[in-house]
Write a protein that binds this DNA or RNA. Sequence first.
DNA 1: TTGTAGGCGTTATCAC
DNA 2: GTGATAACGCCTACAA
Lengths: 349, 349
Amino acid sequence: MAHKTTIYDIAKKLGITAATVSRALNDHPRISEATKKMVMSTAREMNYVPNKLALALKNGKSTNVGVVVPFINRHFFSNVIRGIEEELYPKGYNVIICQTHDEEQRERDIIQNLMNSQVEGIIISIARTNTKFDHLEQVLKKGLPMVFFDRKRDMEGVVSVAIDDFQGGYDATMHLVKQGCRTIAHLRGDRTLEIYWERFKGYQQALKDSGLAYREELVLDITSVEEEGLRAAQRLMAVENPPDAIFSSSDYGALGAIKWLVQKGYRIPDDICVVGFSNEPFTQIMDLSISSVDQSPMEMGRMAARVFLDGTDVTDTAKTQKRVVLSPTLMVRDSSLRDSGPVPSPKVD
Amino acid sequence: MAHKTTIYDIAKKLGITAATVSRALNDHPRISEATKKMVMSTAREMNYVPNKLALALKNGKSTNVGVVVPFINRHFFSNVIRGIEEELYPKGYNVIICQTHDEEQRERDIIQNLMNSQVEGIIISIARTNTKFDHLEQVLKKGLPMVFFDRKRDMEGVVSVAIDDFQGGYDATMHLVKQGCRTIAHLRGDRTLEIYWERFKGYQQALKDSGLAYREELVLDITSVEEEGLRAAQRLMAVENPPDAIFSSSDYGALGAIKWLVQKGYRIPDDICVVGFSNEPFTQIMDLSISSVDQSPMEMGRMAARVFLDGTDVTDTAKTQKRVVLSPTLMVRDSSLRDSGPVPSPKVD
DNA sequence: TTGTAGGCGTTATCAC
DNA sequence: GTGATAACGCCTACAA
């Protein structure tokens, strides 16, 4: 694996100085066209490749940005990453991705490693298990721009990008009300996570605004898996005065619920309407397609990247806004769309 | 954003030399425990973060690996990336991801950029539109290790990792034969891509081995979208002597076909069996779950990473094997599993 | 046990 | 227009 050619090699071959070569390569104004041509062509000949590392060391800037997520292969995160990459690549940045596996220790290691790597910034959805946050404070202390998305946290000098989960919960519930549902249950996600709590609050508010009673026994805590949605549906329908609609904080929960309901002979959406959350691909593919709240993950990624770029562009002034809130979009589908008249506001695909 | 502390800063504060600090930090054997402790603690105090860039420049190694895919957010690719990341991270490598959007020019730019960035290697699934490959030759000329996965190409000194598509096509078809199907159609993917061609050849071979006739009119070319599968099914069932099974080279094709068939009143799998390819998440979620060939993308990613690691470990000797072939796994589900007796070999989930 | 000096590949600042 | 030199942060012979 031969020696990598440097500007010195080119200089030597041409009987000039490395400095001149450097200038020629960078199209410096006061370099003769002749030498420029020479340098360019021999550079190509010798398979010259500029060394970004050297440049980075010199400038103290690496042109790398760290992106940290729990798992890369989740639909939501892979789309966010795509958005980030597509926004950053044209600006000359490379994206380094890391997975925390939702483990705090791993997140700490990763942050440390990214700082070592001299990334220009960190875009992160924090791990759910986090109890302490000093590693993130560290980042700020170093003057490294940081952006949160999805799993955010209030922190001085960090902009967060997320959808309005409250709004999502509110819209979903309101939609159910408009479909004529009067007894709406909720499958709630992990209460300690802000996003789930907000969805729940949105649900409550919608009930209130509609003059519907909030009944505790209609709110069940589940994790985001089919099996739990299934059991939850079973429990709900055994309640006295059972629900005629279910708003699930996750699509998998909705899926499980629907499967159980269908199997038991309930007609959807006539007997009972169901709405999920996240707009997972499968929701629109099902024979009975599932209504769901879209989080526009790619757009979220783009936005997070833009926030980062703005932060670096700006000449250190205006601390801009503290959080960017994206609006969720309710996708109305079979599982909650009753024939009785058209639905005006929400999107139907 | 204060000045980043270097070993010089630590040295000055302690009245010693940067060299000593460096050695202390690296736990050099002949450094007094006393100074080690001193250095360590003041390093922490001063929020010292070692600069990987400087190290990289010095050693000529960046500890970064480039991963290049068409789109990050495809189920298959995001899983491969996860596999790669999880194998490489513990070894101290960072993963830089780039998307080609399946465009040749973009791939060229990316490769160039990764070489500039002094990555230690490149793991890539090449763009489908590629007509020339000199940019990839360039990589090798630089002595940079490269590994292909999925979309491979024969090239001196490059190991490729992929599943045995021929086997996948063969297994799927054979399974259909065992279900009693006698007239098996095939929805073929882009013929210019090796993977699809191989699946097709496997299909042909299985027919041959089963003594079934190969009929050209039962092979339709489609792209991997629901709509095309739908139209294909329609055309196939209009043929004289229509098929009693369809092996689709993609899950979306299978999905479209199934939807059309169901709508037209065909019973699946009784009247007609369907098998897809890729094991997309939705295939097992459907009410009528879809049989499909699993490509174990995460395993593929891990394997590609391991191949890269082996290549760097080895002291430049043994050019090991030229390609790693992973076995596909047929997931038998509702869409092709007839009641008539148990199926021995393939996996049922 | 610790200090000195040179170099990794570039570019920026002076000179000429 | 081009050459020499220093500097980015770190490591590592070679000295002491």
